[in-house]
Simulated scan of single mutants.
Amino acid sequence: MSETTPPATPDFREPSEIGSVKELEAVYDISVTVSAVLGKATMQVSQLLKLGRGAVVELDRRLGEAIDIYVNNRLIARGEVVMVDNTRLGVTMTEIVKSERSQ
Rank of each mutant, 00 (worst) to 15 (best):
V56K: 00
V57T: 10
E95F: 06
S35C: 11
R61Y: 02
L63G: 09
D11A: 07
A36C: 04
T9N: 08
L48R: 02
L59E: 05
D68A: 02
V56Q: 00
T33N: 08
K50W: 00
N73F: 06
Q47C: 08
E17W: 06
V34W: 03
S102L: 15
Q44T: 15
N73P: 01
R74M: 12
L51M: 06
R88V: 02
R61V: 05
V71R: 05
L75V: 13
V45G: 13
V27P: 04
S99H: 13
D11R: 00
K98S: 15
S2I: 15
R62F: 05
T5K: 04
T33I: 09
R101A: 14
V34S: 02
A8C: 10
T5L: 08
I96G: 12
S31K: 11
D29L: 07
R74E: 14
S2H: 11
M93Y: 05
A8E: 13
E58R: 09
L63E: 11
P7D: 02
K98A: 14
K22Y: 03
A26M: 04
G19R: 08
R62Q: 04
G79H: 04
Q103N: 15
A26P: 04
I30A: 06
V57P: 01
D85C: 04
P10E: 10
T94M: 03
D85Q: 01
V32D: 13
L24G: 05
M93Q: 10
V45D: 15
G54M: 01
V57I: 12
T94C: 07
D11F: 04
L49W: 02
V57E: 09
E95Y: 07
N72F: 05
K98V: 08
M1A: 15
S2L: 13
L24K: 00
E58L: 10
R53L: 07
E95T: 04
V84R: 02
E14F: 15
K50C: 10
R13A: 14
T42P: 02
G79P: 05
T87A: 14
D60K: 11
K50T: 13
I76N: 09
K50V: 06
I30M: 01
E25Q: 07
G64F: 00
N86C: 11
E17L: 10
T4H: 14
S2A: 15
M43I: 03
E23Q: 11
G64V: 01
G19I: 06
A36Y: 03
K40M: 03
M43V: 06
R62S: 08
L63P: 11
I96S: 10
R62G: 08
T87R: 13
Y70W: 09
Q44S: 14
V71K: 08
E23G: 10
R101C: 10
A77Q: 09
R78E: 11
P15Q: 07
V82Y: 12
G52L: 02
P7M: 02
M93L: 14
L89S: 06
K50R: 10
K22D: 01
D85K: 00
M93D: 03
R74Y: 12
S35K: 12
